[in-house]
Design a protein around this nucleic acid. Structure first.
Length: 389
RNA sequence: GGUAGGGUAUCCAAGUGGCUAAAGGAUGCGGACUGUAAAUCCGCCCGCUUCGUGCGUUCGUCGGUUCGAAUCCGACCCCUACCA
């Protein structure tokens, strides 16, 4: 079935298929913890799947783990997450929603927050919940096992996390929960808890994890190897172009829902063209085709042909009002660099060009061009600056 | 509570008195090449800098020994294992 395409593991597939065949409307749960302000393309993999269910007429339930965010999900973690304040969590939660609706259909999405029920729960109730899980089962879990084996700390509160997430499923009475493959354990706990309460246990569907821009680790905010929903068109395009050739097909498959057949066809084309197409599609998804085409042209022009970008920050020498208008001082005054030391290093490494000629001496004085055109400084691959009178 | 091991830069991880701003990875940045902000190769990578054999800060924290400490001593904080 189409709904199970590109998935990794589906548990309870037969029951789900049966319900769907009977025309039942499934309650599909997906939970996100608002721990940071940005959603990444890693999340998009699951959002896409949720959207697919939504389009097929099922109920998409987006659970904002505003309560859980304060605890920290141990999934894929090697250490305890820092605690967040209620305020931070709330702010993140609202930007999450805004971002999520770039994929999901807002009018058809049910949004719930788990603070609705957890903030009212008593300690005795929580303790009762812990009764449902054994230490041995917790330690079966990879994240915990690895940390335990390598003598890393695991806090009690992290042990609670899967139960909390599972309890959400009880409250929401979900028919299926979807998430990244690192969520398998947590989602299974939901299934167990529902069963325990005499409910119909939810199906569990995991999506593969998207690899990050470094090409090795999973895409994650903590590794800073991500593309964010909120990135500019330029960055979505550019960052996508920095994905390695190997990882590219996963991006197509998981972010644009391509089938194996379609992927096979792409293999015959030039990798760079394929990647440009990918970057174009993703940019268009978040903006529009016109913007995407603009970024594509710009990229080809700037990086393939070495031309100047259309927009670049502009600085006036007279306004900067420097004692000595050397390249070093001018660049330092733009605030685009961390320090003069960094600028010197860049110049030393041959990264800085003035009007296309490599700058060798940091102290080289910039003389105003005889009235004619502005001067352009390029520093590294991505920084272009226009200098005017 | 007892015993043993551990806390090093963004991350992982060497280093047991001076030659240590501290090996080696990874990430990141830059250059070359090109097919892209891919791949590969090379370089840089604590911060600042008037670029000077310059200044400042670091090896859990605080104090001590010493001409000199990440390295030795003391106290404290934190992590882990085993025993209870």
């Amino acid at each position: 079935m189409e709904l199970f395409a590109n998935t990794e593991i589906v548990i309870g597939k037969d029951e789900l298929a049966e319900k769907v065949a009977k025309g039942e409307k499934l309650r599909v749960k997906f939970g996100v913890d608002p721990t940071r302000p940005d959603l990444t393309f890693g999340h998009m993999v699951v959002f896409n799947k949720l959207k697919q269910f939504q389009d097929a007429g099922h109920e998409a339930i987006l659970l904002i783990g505003d309560y859980t965010a304060r605890i920290g999900d141990p999934s894929g973690r090697s250490e305890l997450r820092p605690e967040l304040t209620e305020n931070e969590v709330n702010q993140n939660a609202s930007t999450y929603l805004e971002q999520a609706f770039r994929i999901l259909d807002k009018s058809k999405t049910t949004v719930r927050r788990n603070s609705e029920w957890f903030s009212k729960m008593s300690f005795a109730d929580s303790l009762n919940l812990t009764r449902k899980m054994t230490v041995a089962r917790m330690l079966e879990r990879d994240d915990f096992k690895n940390r335990f084996d390598s003598n890393q700390p695991i806090s009690m509160v992290e042990f609670m996390y899967p139960l909390i997430q599972g309890y959400d499923s009880v409250i929401l009475n979900s028919d299926i929960e979807i998430g990244g493959s690192d969520q398998l354990f947590n989602m299974l706990v939901g299934r167990t808890l529902q069963k325990d309460m005499g409910m119909n246990p939810q199906g569990v569907l995991t999506m593969p994890l998207l690899v990050g821009l470094d090409g090795t680790r999973k895409m994650s905010k903590s590794y800073d190897n991500y593309i964010a929903f909120n990135d500019s068109a330029k960055n979505i395009f550019g960052k996508t172009m920095s994905v390695s050739d190997e990882a590219m097909s996963e991006f197509y498959r998981l972010l644009l829902n391509l089938t194996d057949l379609e992927l096979g066809e792409l293999k015959n084309q030039h990798p760079m063209d394929v990647k440009k197409k990918l970057a174009f599609e993703l940019t268009a998804k978040f903006f529009d085709e016109v913007t995407a085409q603009k970024e594509l042209d710009e990229f080809s022009s700037v990086f393939s042909k070495g031309r100047l970008p259309e927009d670049m920050p502009s600085f006036s020498v007279t306004k900067l009002n420097l004692e000595k208008s050397s390249v070093l001082n001018i660049l330092a005054a733009t605030d685009l660099f961390q320090s003069k030391g960094e600028i010197r290093r860049l110049i030393l490494q041959g990264a800085v060009k003035l009007n296309g000629t490599r700058v060798e001496d940091p102290e080289c004085i910039m003389t105003p061009n005889d009235a004619s055109s502005d001067q352009i400084i390029k520093a590294g691959k991505k920084i272009f600056i226009r200098i005017t009178e």
